[in-house]
Amino acid sequence: MRSEPDLAPVLASPAEETALPSQRMRALQRFLRNPGAVVGAGVLGFWLVVAVISPFLVPYDPTDTVGLARQAPSAEFWFGTDTLGRDVFSRVLVGSQISLQLGLISIGLGAVPGVTMGLVAGYFGGLTDAVISRFVDALLAFPSILLALVIIAALGPNLQNVMIAVGIGTVPLYARLVRGSVLAVKQLPYVEAARVVGNPAWRIMFRHVLANAYAPIVVLSTLQVGNAILIGSGLSFLGLGAQPPTPEWGLMSAEGRDVLRRAWWISTFPGVAILSVVVACNLVGDGLRSALDPRMRVDG
């Protein structure tokens, strides 16, 4: 299910140009004082580096048979070999590329339309707002996994469609969040001033309103990257996402399921990888939430 991050719309004061760096510095300091957030950032950084350099780093080709099937972890194969004799360690490392892409791309696919819808609804109000808000409410009333399942049923099971499905599931979250932020800053004098000097609506929305509502968007995105990886790997586990021989973590867990009793390592290591990435995303997201705006409630 979708978690409900408690993100109160920020009423960030439009700080003067000179005050911005110090405000950011203070946020950074708050972030660095939070041990959980630092650990999370470290783990996430580790996986990012692995994702980039793993093709040059892994001992074996992740899709090649390099030994006997179902060999237990050893000095030669650190995480053992899978049912087809492929090296699980290499597959887990290279798999980080897929999971991080899945998280980032699906969030991008959700954030762009979601933020736009929220901006338009909040800024124009009236009938536009009513129509968009009803639509968003209907999507929110619908467990996102069901929406994802329908979309995959329509488009066909593959990794790309999982990204689309998971991304669409986050659209209403962004729309609701941004709409709230827009309503909070819309009446402030600096927005009024931007309007009076003749800026077009789109410019006010993106340059002035959105620029002051970025903090909760960043926090939501970080938390949702973890969530997207969780849902995406679950769909791949079910056979509705990545297809063999892709080294996707959820799919790898599924491939080990039938031989779990004899070869526990095939399913176990990819799962540990998913868990570590998702915990890291949540730690960083929560850390950002309390660092960017102490007024945002930290529980959640």
Partner: peptide, 22 residues
């Protein structure tokens, strides 16, 4: 609680099977 909320459901199920069934 944190680990629980970040756990892939399918993986946790497999681990339980491995431990308590096998």
């Amino acid at each position: 609680a944190y680990v629980g909320a970040s756990m892939p459901v399918f993986w946790f199920g497999l681990i339980l099977i491995l431990t308590f069934s096998f």
